[in-house]
Design a binder for these strands. Structure first.
Lengths: 340, 340
DNA sequence: CTACCTTGTGGTATCGATAACACAGCGTGT
DNA sequence: ACACGCTGTGTTATCGATACCACAAGGTAG
């Protein structure tokens, strides 16, 4: 049997005895079609299993109905929720969503952005790798493709933005540790060229300063944002002459690795080291409500980011850029301990 | 400044003083272009920021370089890994991947499949909602779109398939419970129209039969495959006159809910109820290695499924369908207890 | 009865790329 | 010197849809 993959509007036209323009009108629910004709055309469509090509339509209409979502790590439970939210809003708004995982690699990010330009996506929701993504983003702007930054800002890029309150959240977490009596509090973070890391560091420093605690540079260690980085970072801290009594990690995955390092040193969280971090791990917390976290509304970052994007694409957005800072939720569990 | 979004091959041709065919040849690395011409064209491309449209190219070439991945729940850590694997292989093979989340809803599945047909994706990797997806899949086949089933088979659909060993894995899990002395072992599962549920049930029954244990229908309860379903299912079991002493759940999310139900009844896993399930939860297990699971190679399902698909699209696959059953890894942790 | 509008439909150009073919210019073997 | 082949380039048709304009048939106003 013939594959209907190559059934075109002309085939439908021939079978139903009208021109392709009329078929097009039926497909697009345009007014000017007599009920009788419409019926005949619809029947032909059903018979032939015709599906209009979005390629051809996109080419002539100059819009594809496709968006892209670019994140650094889909397997991070935080971004997984972002993905779900974004995908859902896109579908409801009548758009398809292409997912790209950059693996936090600037080169891959550049490549996927080029790909998305070639695909003529109408807009992009992106959690950029770092400030160094600026070049790619400027290229997007020059190309005339709308985009919304989520989770991370990039200095010099004036697009719509949806982020969590990193500075405020970090401050609350660290103040919590201080209130429990800690005065040597470390921070395991990633490079300062990622806005969330920068902002969380600012919150960390602000909390220390407000409490009159000194800022000890040896307590701020830099790591990759995955369990391995957390492991290495925590190991480094534990080997200091005067190790910290509490640690704040820049995100959930780093915290997991950090805990593993603590255990590897035959110590325990929170008894020997108190721990707090950004971002919850939904399913882990259900099983074992252990980590004291600043839980960001991940799914909302995805949904809201996509909504702002769609509004802008459809010209329903104000000219002014919109910067949304979503509050995070402070969830106290065991890992921060009961104090010293 | 003009947005280069509408820079076409003709603009490049004009600027570099050649015909668009020559530009096309440069873009496609075809041989027959003099070094000098090539240089001029490349410079014009750079100057104008030209990016060839995949729409136009796809239309004329009759291929889009796009695949689709359709899963029932991207937020399930199992499928998250599938997504990562699939996305990665697709990118390396030079394809883009559109992600669709059906939320285990047959209607949404039908819609997204139609969308993907309209997009003229070259192939689809799909974890179908259930056996009732058969109609959609037949439509795909008739349309001439290649697809590979992952995680779940569908009776009557003879495509390439990559699944985990559900029957074998289930049997091992239940035998483990039996070896620990349990003889009232329950199974919380989903509808029998999902192949994994069916196969795991077969494994469950086989293990009981092999041990000479009776099959008590009241110990097999049906639930939705999420924590809520697990909670409800376990609650139902705990309220039996003679509750089970051990429970096998059809997947990880169901297990989480089941545990919550046990706790809600002021009982404990594994002391009061032993628990085993399919599918690990990577980050949860790192934090708290608690669940005894049959860990499927989720990322491999994604990578291998996509590889098979690409091979088939590119005509490098044998005519014969390929059915790959990947072994799962049995990981004993605490939730199954030390026996009675 | 004529001018004009509305309705339903068709014809043709077009979106941006490539396939298929054509062809000019030059080198080469005999 | 001629047929032939190769190199580099251009011309035209085409992919599948829609925009835009044209137009016939019938209704309505004056």
């Amino acid at each position: 049997m013939a594959t209907p993959g190559n059934v075109t509007i002309k085939d439908v036209a021939r079978v139903s005895g009208v021109s392709s323009m009329t078929v097009s009108r039926v497909i697009n629910d345009s007014e000017r079609v007599s009920p009788d004709t419409r019926r005949r055309v619809e029947q032909a469509i059903a018979e032939l299993g015709y599906v209009p090509s979005r390629l051809a339509r996109g080419l002539i209409r100059q819009k594809t109905g496709t968006l892209a979502l670019i994140v650094p790590d889909v397997a991070n439970p935080f971004f997984t929720l972002v993905v779900r939210g974004a995908e859902d809003v896109a579908r409801r708004a009548g758009y398809r969503m292409i997912l790209c995982d950059t693996r936090a690699d600037l080169t891959i990010e550049r490549e996927v952005i080029e790909e998305m330009l070639a695909h003529r996506v109408e807009g992009i929701v992106i959690a950029p790798v770092s400030d160094r993504s600026k070049g790619h983003l400027e290229r997007l702007a020059r190309f005339g493709v709308q985009f919304v930054l989520i989770d991370r800002t990039v200095p010099g890029i004036e697009s719509d933005v949806v982020v969590g309150d990193s500075a405020g959240g970090a401050r609350v977490l660290v103040e919590h540790l201080i209130s429990l009596g800690h005065d040597r509090i470390a921070f395991i973070t990633e490079g300062n060229d990622v806005s969330t890391a920068r902002d969380r560091r600012a919150g960390y420093e602000a909390a220390l300063a407000a409490a009159g605690l000194p800022l000890d540079p040896s307590l701020v260690v830099r790591a990759t944002v995955d369990p391995r980085g957390g492991f290495d970072g925590m190991s480094q801290l534990l080997e200091l002459d005067e190790p910290p009594t509490a640690v704040f990690t820049v995100n959930n995955l780093v915290a997991l690795g950090a805990i593993e390092a603590v255990r590897a040193h035959e110590l325990e969280v929170p008894d020997d080291i108190a721990l707090v971090c950004f971002d919850d791990i939904e399913y882990a917390s259900r099983l074992y409500p252990f980590l004291t976290v600043m839980a960001q509304p991940a799914e909302t970052l995805g949904t809201l980011g996509t909504q702002l994007l769609v509004e802008r694409i459809e010209g329903r957005a104000p000219e002014q850029r919109r910067v949304v800072v979503l509050p995070a939720q402070f969830v106290v569990r065991k890992s921060s301990g009961d104090g010293r």
